[in-house]
């Protein structure tokens, strides 16, 4: 298995180590994965740029004259509206600025959800695999219960408990995604635990936490990374979906899901397509990026895993 372990006192340079890793060389030779990575990096740059430099401040009365509401994208003809690349929404806000800012929000909250559920899933999965028996059963059967709900519906049920709002949605989605990670990590950890070096470490007197953190975890990292990448796309969709249904971002937040919700309620029947088109386009491109990269990683890791990792 082509995993990078940071545990050795390896003195080789990082470049050499990366080149020696069949996983990375395989991944870097996959054109689609590179495209995916570029899409993600591009979106990160846009998001960071928006966070630092875009001012979403309220529109003053004097500006409102130059800011008509539901103005079509400027390049569609009317020269007066050149400044609005993606048009304006029902509240006369510049959709281009908001869509860029949405990238920041999507990535930030996506990182929170995937990060938190990865950490939780790793802990639960490794503990279940290492201690086995009762612990394993209790942990994994609990995970099974969560997996018995369709994911978006579990998220909605949890939102009913926690209430609406982006931070609560993050908690709900973290609980929804944790079981998936726990399952993958448990499977990987069980395989690692069979290896002899684990026995050797235990024989040398290592305590449980050391065995788990220094030896089991690093050797499970590859499948975890693949799982995180593939779930990142799903998490971003689910975050947007909950905002779309009205339980995530609060009114006025430039989140893609909320912009789509506004697009549906304000633009569908009147044909103001740009209200929905641009936020959704950016959302889809971001998710595509993660799917391309995740697919490439999975193939590079082990072509035989195609069916097992969802």
């Amino acid at each position: 298995m082509a995993t990078e372990t940071s545990t050795t006192t390896d003195s080789r340079g990082i470049v050499e180590r990366l080149r020696a890793s069949p996983f990375l060389s395989e991944l870097l030779s996959n054109r689609l994965a590179i495209i995916g990575l570029s899409l993600i990096l591009g979106m990160v740059l846009l998001g960071v740029y928006a966070r630092l430099f875009i001012d979403l401040g309220a529109i003053s009365q004097s500006q409102l004259a130059a800011h008509p509401n539901k103005a079509p994208p400027g390049w569609l003809g009317s020269a007066a509206l050149d400044q609005f690349l993606f048009g304006t929404d029902a509240a006369a806000r510049d959709i281009f600025k908001r869509v860029l800012y949405g990238a920041w929000l999507a990535l930030k909250f996506g990182v929170l959800v995937v990060g938190a559920s990865t950490v939780l899933g790793i802990s639960l999965g490794i503990i279940a695999a290492y201690y086995g028996d009762v612990v394993d059963n209790v942990v994994m059967r609990t995970m099974d219960v969560f997996l018995a709900f369709p994911s978006l519906l579990l998220a909605l049920a949890l939102v009913a408990i926690f209430g609406a709002g982006l931070s609560k949605v993050v908690i709900a989605l973290t609980l929804v995604y944790t079981p998936r990670f726990a399952r993958v990590v448990r499977g990987a950890a069980l395989k690692v635990l069979e290896d002899e070096y684990i026995d050797a470490t235990v024989a040398l007197g290592a305590r449980d936490p050391r065995v788990l953190v220094r030896h089991v975890l690093p050797n499970c990292l590859a499948p975890i990374t693949v799982q995180s990448t593939l779930n990142f796309g799903l998490a971003i969709i689910d975050l947007a979906a909950l905002s779309f249904l009205g339980f995530g971002a609060q009114a006025g937040t430039p989140s893609w899901g909320l912009m789509l919700k506004n697009g549906v309620s304000n633009g569908l029947l009147t044909g103001d397509w740009w209200l929905s088109f641009f936020p959704g386009l950016f959302l889809a491109i971001t998710v595509l990026g993660f799917n391309l990269l995740g697919d490439g990683m999975r193939d590079a890791l082990d072509p035989r895993m195609r069916e097992t990792v969802e």
């Binding site: 397509w273 959704g280 595509l288 697919d295």
Partner: peptide
């Protein structure tokens, strides 16, 4: 197919509606 799974329903839905129903 990869594009298909990357496009959320709450985007493709409004788009087909706009094209086939509204326009």
């Amino acid at each position: 197919a990869l594009t298909g799974i990357s496009v959320p329903i709450f985007w493709s839905g409004p788009l087909v509606l706009l094209v086939f129903a509204t326009f």
